[in-house]
Design a protein around this nucleic acid. Structure first.
Lengths: 294, 294
DNA sequence: CATATGTTTCTTATGTATAAAAAACGAGGG
DNA sequence: CCCTCGTTTTTTATACATAAGAAACATATG
């Protein structure tokens, strides 16, 4: 019943590990592989068995050596490495953002399960987790209501985001000179400049950098509720912009420049300029989002 | 498989409705009852059938009249009116707050299900929903970790709470004189004074009033993320203090006075006094919570 | 024909089943 | 003994089943 996506992902990762080894070389211990692959030893052994069956690994008494280099073909396709719950997430996001789900639409667990081709249990579990994003609401003994990816959603989101980011930026600036974060922020600036230099080709890399930047600022004074809210933001940007590529290059370039301005403000330690830079960035991000919703 | 708690709750509520009617009087239509009881007509009919079987209602051709007044005995006990998912919530809270669950404890779905005497599915569903409270964390393909009801939890909670409440209080004070909220806040003050006058007997009623007060202030500028955060606060106070009765009367009396001060500040429309009153209240609430955790 | 009741169909809440994955246990070898 | 590997037990992810509840449809009655 359970899918073997963990195995398949580990198998693919194992191929990469073997690539770094020479023919005839002995493999690391199961335990070492377990740590490298981030799975249980049970799964490691399954992977090893699979590779043995394919002749990639030759198992002799109490030792395992590389028999032949695996070929690219032997990798499992990406889809098969995603747990059903992850597939449901993608399906749902697509249904929500590109489908005709308008505000107020009733969400039917059974119907979604049929549409996505999965069990109701898993749709239900997903919806329960997804609830925290504030886009759906449960009604007792009935289904869910989709509240809509609307302007008011964006406004409420950014109201909170502003409070949280201003708070973090201020705390950040208050750190002592000796703190290692100042090095990290330097590295961040370098990464931004690099991306900016090659913006035409790499503008799609911004989304990940954006998330890392904001998390770095937040991390100096950890608060689980703020971190959890960042998930909301990440989700919104990840999925929403995945289906809304309009002006993506320009949008990202603007954001990079705003980040650079904020970095400079942080380094100046001047609260007023930090507030200004922070607010400027958030306002522009909000306007961009609002424009793409309308 | 599904429990009939909805029916039992509706049945109990129906007893109260019948109490307001006279012997031989005709009952409202199924549809009217449906609206009053807040359930589906299917459930209403089941309740009516149950009452007919007991002789409380006499069904003649196309009309139903009261046959005899139901007795208190015939009510279903409270426990049977709680959905399994609600029972799981209570069980879990008790396990967490009074049991020996120290920070870092691993939470085992299967074990909890056995302990609570329910299916694993429902424990899993509960944990997924409960995740948003920031007290537990999921680990891929493994169980959950209980992060602990610790001082840092309380501090992080109050950091957010302060931001949110200050924001709401300021927006509240900015409302025009004509706004109906000023009447509501008057009523709130009256409710507080009433409770204060009878504090020795009714101190346990404070918890609900507290929640209502904070929600009233928040409601003037709705934000789904803030509202959702209030659920966290409500949960904390509801359950934590349920198992921590120390100084309850004194604690609540202090809080009531602080609320009254905040009400006065709000009415003064003076931002500085609002901030002061608000912060004072939150500081004292935080200290109280911290003291009870230590 | 509008409203109330009877009937049928669909959905949700909750239990059970099972393969995959993790963890625990155990035995040899350096 | 510590580490590695083989084996057994436990737990999780996911599917499926079904009674309770909601909703839709149908019929009757004033």
């Amino acid at each position: 019943m359970r899918t073997d996506t963990t195995f398949k992902r580990a198998f693919n990762d194992m191929i990469d590990i073997i690539r770094t080894l020479d023919l005839g070389e002995e493999l690391p211990s199961e335990n070492a592989l377990r740590a490298q692959l981030g799975v249980s030893r049970t799964t490691v052994r399954k992977v090893l068995a699979g590779m043995s069956a394919r002749g990639i690994i030759i198992s002799e008494a109490h030792r395992r050596i590389i028999g032949e280099q695996p070929r690219q073909i032997e990798r499992y396709p990406k889809e098969e490495t995603l747990a059903i719950s992850e597939q449901v997430e993608t399906s749902f996001m697509e249904w929500m953002l590109r489908g005709d789900a308008c505000p107020g639409t009733e969400i039917n667990e059974a119907e979604l399960a049929r549409k996505f081709g999965v069990a109701t249990t898993i749709v239900r579990e997903f919806l329960n987790r997804f609830q925290k994003y504030g886009l759906i609401e449960k009604r007792q003994n009935a289904g869910w209501v989709f509240k809509g990816f609307t302007a008011s959603f964006a406004l409420e989101l950014f109201e909170i985001r502003e409070m949280f980011e201003m708070r973090s930026a201020r705390l950040f600036a208050a750190l002592p000179d000796g703190s290692p974060v100042w090095k990290q922020i330097q590295a961040m600036r370098a990464a931004h400049l690099e991306l900016l230099a090659d913006i035409d080709a790499r503008f799609q890399d911004f989304s990940e950098l954006d998330s890392r930047f904001h998390r770095l600022i937040t991390a100096v004074a950890p608060n689980r509720f703020i971190e959890s809210f960042q998930d909301v933001i990440t989700m919104v940007f990840h999925y929403h912009y995945q289906w809304n590529k309009r002006d993506e290059r320009a949008r990202n370039e603007v954001a990079i420049r705003e980040h650079l301005a904020l970095i400079e403000a942080l380094e100046s330690r001047n609260i007023a300029s930090i507030d200004r830079a922070c607010r400027l960035h958030l306002t522009s991000a909000r306007e961009t989002l609002l424009r793409s919703i309308a």
